[in-house]
Amino acid sequence: MAELKLLGLSYSPFSHRVEWALKIKGVKYEFIEEDLRNKSVLLLQSNPIYKKIPVLIHNGRCICESMVILEYIDEAFEGHSILPKDPYDRALARFWAKYVDNKAEALWESFFLKGEEQEKAKGEIYEMLKILDNELKDKKYFVGDKFGFADIVANGPALYLGILEEVSGVVLATSEKFPNFCVWRDEYCTQHKEYFPSRDELVIRYRTYIQPVDALK
């Protein structure tokens, strides 16, 4: 039997992507919780370049970066395909996954930073939401009629954005401004909640990092 370990954080959207893919494939794995303030020797050895989670260790071989890991999982294990079979759809899925992934830093900065830097990050997220609102009109999935690669990568705006909004009291994605995105997000969270971390635990975790707006008054 293959030995499979995942180094990650239970509240990280990047770790969550990988866990989701493994669950879709029906693959058993050992989850090893990391402390990024005191990184383990195993993490430092497994990802010596970036020293970041997640890292998938498959039979002693290390794969780093969540999107790279997703593609590896799809190719290494049998079961439901994560990436589309059609070459064009596969390219499209990679495009949207990369677009959303590139906005991850701005998403966190919209809530964790202050002043001009925060406003700049918010502007970038508003632009992303505008684009997604247009792209996801009358669509359940990014590509075709099946949940897949781009949808997993989009767990940031689909799930974690809502968590950060709840914790901070700052709402970026309103149904008035982005109706199509909000409909898609509600469907996403309803249909796939079995794969999500505990929402209550995520809220508790992120409250330790973000001060609500009311507390600043």
Rank of each mutant, 00 (worst) to 15 (best):
Asn155Gln: 01
Arg185Asn: 09
Lys114Arg: 14
Pro157Asn: 05
Pro197Ile: 00
Asp133Tyr: 09
Gly123Asp: 00
Ser110Lys: 02
Lys120Val: 05
Lys130Cys: 13
Tyr188Pro: 05
Phe196Ala: 12
Leu164Arg: 05
Gly162Met: 04
Ala154Gln: 00
Ala121Lys: 00
Glu176Thr: 12
Leu161Glu: 11
Ala173Pro: 09
Lys114Leu: 13
Leu107Trp: 03
Phe142Cys: 12
Phe111Ala: 07
Glu117Ser: 13
Asp151Gly: 04
Lys120Phe: 00
Lys98Asp: 15
Ala93Ile: 08
Phe142Asp: 12
Phe112Met: 14
Leu129Val: 08
Glu166Gln: 14
Glu187Cys: 09
Lys146Ala: 14
Glu124Arg: 04
Ala93Asp: 12
Cys182His: 00
Val183Pro: 02
Lys98Leu: 14
Lys85Tyr: 10
Met128Tyr: 03
Glu176Ala: 14
Glu109Ser: 13
Glu194Lys: 11
Asn102Ile: 02
Asp101Ala: 12
Ile152His: 02
Val153Glu: 01
Lys114Gln: 15
Trp96Ser: 11
Pro179Thr: 01
Gly123Val: 04
Ala154Ser: 15
Ser198Tyr: 00
Asp133Glu: 13
Leu113Ala: 11
Leu136Arg: 06
Glu127Asn: 13
Ala173Glu: 10
Leu113Ile: 04
Gln118Thr: 01
Glu165Ser: 10
Asp101Arg: 01
Ser198Ala: 03
Lys122Glu: 08
Phe147Thr: 05
Gly123Asn: 02
Glu116Val: 12
Lys140Cys: 13
Pro179Ala: 07
Lys177Ser: 14
Val100Pro: 10
Ala104Phe: 15
Arg199Phe: 11
Ser198Asn: 05
Asp86Lys: 03
Phe147Asp: 10
Gly169Val: 03
Leu136Thr: 09
Glu109Pro: 03
Ile125Gln: 05
Glu135Asp: 10
Ile152Val: 07
Glu194Tyr: 03
Asn102His: 03
Phe111Lys: 04
Ser175Gln: 07
Val143Met: 14
Glu166Phe: 09
Phe142Leu: 12
Tyr160Asp: 11
Lys139Val: 10
Pro197Thr: 01
Ile131Asp: 12
Ala104Tyr: 14
Ala93Val: 08
Thr174Trp: 07
Lys146Thr: 12
Ala91Trp: 05
